[in-house]
Structures are given as structure tokens and as C-alpha cells.
């Protein structure tokens, strides 16, 4: 087995795939630099992302299946699921060898798995569009923390930009320790060295707690007790999301 250890960037993954083709590696297996592969009798290749090499692979894929569908491979990679790298590699291999758009070949298990991964990513993105709860700070920034299952922040920018064009907002992924910040003209990736504590006195706007209480009231009043269905409730809002939901706190 030849292990290609890449630097955990998408360009790195594309570079690794370039190397497999370039060096005609038959038994390539791609893994992240932080994964623990330490087998004595295998070859290790350390891959540092290379823009030119990544670009060549990317352009080739785009030429065959188009930009929109090529992007779906990147989205699948954001899932961070174990072994997604090799799944993406196998799908790219299938695309290149057939030299046609095979992404709708649902009789192929790899294609099916990619489409299922994309479905999961799409669901998580949609959940975050729903479950983000902004709190207004004294700096007039609407601030939300999230802990999504997958790395979906990059996929959220467009939605929140077009929705909240007239307010400053910040969405922070506490699990991956970075955020997206919109300053009324553009959105940028940000990270903070230390945790921003919203519970400190004076950080939140004085009206903030009013609206949180009103929202909690509303949530309780709109429930119909005679129709109680806890199972359905939990299926829609699994408990792991409750931490940052104002109405479930």
C-alpha cells in the first residue's frame, strides 16, 4: 500500500490525486496528515498542496462534468467523514476513465455513496440555516454560535448574506474554531484566540433578553398539548442541537 498523506486542504487532496496519476501509483491510499498511519512495510508520500497540480486535476474534472457538479465533490469533502478522500478519488477515477458525466449512475455504489454524503451535507446546511440563533451585542453585531456535524460554514455565506444584508452578523463554529463575519459589505473568515463570552454582563444589548423571553413564550404557546408527539419532535430537532437554541435552553 502506498499512503499519500495530504495536508487536509482540498487542494492537497487534488494534488495527491495528481501524484497518483503522475507517478502511476497502483495501490494509492489517501489520508489526512493527522490520521495515524504508521505501518512499517508501506510507502509513505507526504503531499503538500500545489496550486498548479490541483488546478490541472480540477480543470479536467470541470471539463467533463461542469463546474456545478465538480463543486459537489468539494462539498462531499466538507463532510470530513472517514475515508471520504478515497471515495472522492474513486469517483474522480470513474469520471476520468469513462470521460463522461457519470454522477447520475446510481447503479454504482461509489456514486450512490457520494450522493448520500451530499444529501447529509445538504441537510446539515439546511439545519444550520434554521437553527442559527443570533444574539444582539452592544457592538450592534448579531452573534451566533453553532456546532454542526459537518464543516458547513463555507456553504452558509450566501444564504446569510442575502438574508441579513442590513445588519452585521457573525456565525462561529465552536467545534472547528472559526467563524464567518459579515460587516455590511463583505463576509470574511475569522478566528478568535479566546472564547468570546456572551454571558458576561454588558456584552449583550439590553433588549436582547426581552426578545429571547418573548420567543420562548411564543414557542410554548404555539404548542398543542393534545397532539404531543415527542418522537417526532426529537427527530426534527435532535438533542445535540439544543445547546444553542434559544427556545430549548
Amino acid at each position: 500500500m502506498t499512503y499519500l498523506i495530504y495536508d487536509s486542504s482540498f487542494e492537497g487532496l487534488l494534488t495527491a490525486i495528481f501524484e497518483i496519476y503522475d507517478r502511476k501509483i497502483e495501490d494509492g491510499f489517501i489520508c489526512k496528515s493527522d490520521s495515524s498511519v504508521n505501518q512499517l512495510f508501506s510507502t509513505h508520500i507526504l503531499v503538500i498542496h500545489n496550486e498548479l497540480k490541483a488546478e490541472r486535476v480540477w480543470k479536467k474534472i470541470v471539463a467533463i462534468i461542469g463546474e456545478e457538479k465538480a463543486k459537489s465533490l468539494w462539498k462531499a469533502w466538507l463532510s470530513e467523514l472517514p475515508d471520504t478522500e478515497n471515495l472522492i478519488f474513486r469517483v474522480i477515477k470513474y469520471i476520468l476513465s469513462s470521460n463522461s458525466d457519470v454522477l447520475s449512475d446510481y447503479t454504482n455504489p461509489d456514486i450512490l455513496q457520494i450522493s448520500q454524503t451530499l444529501k447529509m451535507i445538504g441537510r446539515e446546511k439546511h439545519r444550520m440555516e434554521a437553527f442559527v440563533r443570533f444574539e444582539l451585542t452592544n457592538d450592534a453585531i448579531y452573534y451566533a454560535k453553532i456546532e454542526p456535524d459537518f464543516n458547513v460554514l463555507p456553504l452558509l455565506i450566501k444564504h446569510f448574506e442575502s438574508r441579513y444584508a442590513d445588519q452585521k452578523w457573525l456565525i462561529y463554529d465552536t467545534k472547528r474554531d472559526y467563524g464567518i463575519y459579515y460587516d455590511l459589505s463583505k463576509t470574511e473568515f475569522v478566528d478568535f484566540p479566546e472564547e468570546n463570552d456572551l454571558s458576561k454582563p454588558g456584552v449583550l444589548n439590553e433588549k436582547e433578553s426581552h426578545y429571547q423571553i418573548l420567543w420562548q413564550d411564543y414557542f410554548a404557546s404555539t404548542n398543542i398539548k393534545a397532539r404531543k408527539n415527542t418522537k417526532l419532535h426529537l427527530r426534527h430537532i435532535p438533542k445535540r442541537y439544543w445547546k444553542y437554541l434559544t427556545e430549548k435552553k
Binding site: 434554521a130 441579513y164 444584508a165 442590513d166 404548542n223 415527542t230 430537532i237
Partner: peptide, 22 residues
């Protein structure tokens, strides 16, 4: 450049304890 947009899919922001979309 105002507040909000309503295009395409709707969003259920929460669910009541009876499982209905809010």
C-alpha cells in the same frame, strides 16, 4: 439591501413538542 429574502425553499426554524414546524 433591506432585511430578509424569500426565495425558494421554506425553512422550519423550530418544531413544537407536537412535532409541527415553526
Amino acid at each position: 439591501k433591506g432585511l430578509g429574502n424569500s426565495t425558494g425553499m421554506g425553512i422550519c426554524h423550530s418544531y413544537t413538542e407536537d412535532g409541527r414546524c415553526v
